[in-house]
Amino acid sequence: MQISGNTIFIPGSTSGIGLALAVELHAEGNTVIVGGRRADLLERIAAEHPGIDTVQIDTTDPGSIASAAKEVLARHPDLNVLVTMAGVMHIEDWRRPESFLASAESVITTNLLGPIRLIAAFVEHLQEQPDATIVTVSSGLAFAPLKVTPSYNASKAAIHMLSESIRLQLAETTVKIVELEPPSVRTSLLPGQEDSEFAMPLEDFVAEVVVLLRTQPDAKEIQVERVKFLRYGEARGDYDQVVETLNALDPHGR
């Protein structure tokens, strides 16, 4: 993926990594469209960041995805990058079904079905562009599990394998698949994570991602240094130690 000259839609980006990345990509010379559920947040983003477009979308709702896709493509027919950013993370106790079932269904709907539906809404259009990219967002937890978030871990592992698979299917098209693999980052994904000493500062994460996009335009996976501890535990042969370390940090894995 080239760092500039793109038209990029980032649904699920009214806060956290998504918004920070949208702002930086806009500063790099891209047309950026931010998507989110709350109209008030979208209005504030448009006011605070002139030039960034906004579209209302609920990535858990197939009808909303279809409607937003039509709106985005009508306003930006040169769209060539989709970033499937939306995601949720919940702490679950799988010893008690009342603790995890509704949570698991919500996580899978947002983190897995959402990206699948978004790709389905845009993939034909993207194949018509001379150079296009789908950016999926997995996690370091796709490769080493945090004990208290089973459904999140599973959803991100699925995103990793989905990315690997559709990259093979789209190999003969103009569409590249790039997987962004964040470590724990200081956002509101879990309560208290914004103040976690273990989590990577948001501005540092996004700055490193932008450098990687600039210097590695053909990369299949975007990995900041911090995530490699989780990503390559099995390859290094220290997977069990990685899992033990991750889950010993504190009860939330931070």
Rank of each mutant, 00 (worst) to 15 (best):
R254L: 06
E92W: 04
S184A: 15
T31C: 08
A132Y: 14
D40L: 10
V137D: 00
T215R: 05
G237S: 10
Q169H: 13
S138F: 01
L162E: 02
G29M: 03
P150H: 05
V227R: 02
E197F: 02
V224F: 01
L146D: 02
I166M: 13
V185D: 11
F100C: 08
Q241G: 11
V23C: 05
A27K: 09
I33T: 10
E105M: 05
I119S: 04
E71I: 14
A219D: 07
G114L: 02
V72C: 02
P11W: 00
R226T: 15
A158Q: 04
I177V: 15
A154L: 12
T110N: 14
I159W: 01
N247S: 06
T31R: 13
E43I: 09
S155E: 03
E24D: 14
Q216Y: 13
L79P: 03
T173N: 08
L190V: 00
V211A: 11
S106C: 06
P251W: 00
L19A: 08
A69N: 11
P62V: 12
S138G: 08
V178Y: 03
S99I: 06
V34A: 03
E164S: 14
F229K: 14
V227H: 02
D53H: 09
I222G: 03
V72A: 01
G5A: 06
L25M: 13
E234K: 15
A74L: 11
K228W: 03
F9S: 00
A219Y: 07
P201C: 07
V107P: 04
V206Q: 01
G12F: 05
A142I: 03
F198C: 06
L146M: 10
A248Y: 09
L73T: 13
Y239C: 00
I10V: 15
D238R: 15
P115M: 07
Y239D: 06
V209F: 08
E24H: 14
G114K: 08
A157E: 06
R186M: 05
T60L: 02
A86W: 11
E48S: 14
L162F: 09
R75H: 12
L212V: 12
V137F: 00
E43L: 10
M200T: 15
E98I: 12
V227Y: 00
V137L: 07
N80K: 12
A27C: 08
A47K: 11
T149N: 04
P62K: 12
F198D: 14
T110I: 02
E221S: 09
A144C: 09
M161G: 10
R186A: 09
G237F: 10
L118V: 10
L189A: 14
G51N: 12
G140A: 06
A20D: 09
R75E: 14
N111G: 05
A121Y: 05
S184L: 08
T187L: 11
E24R: 15
K147L: 06
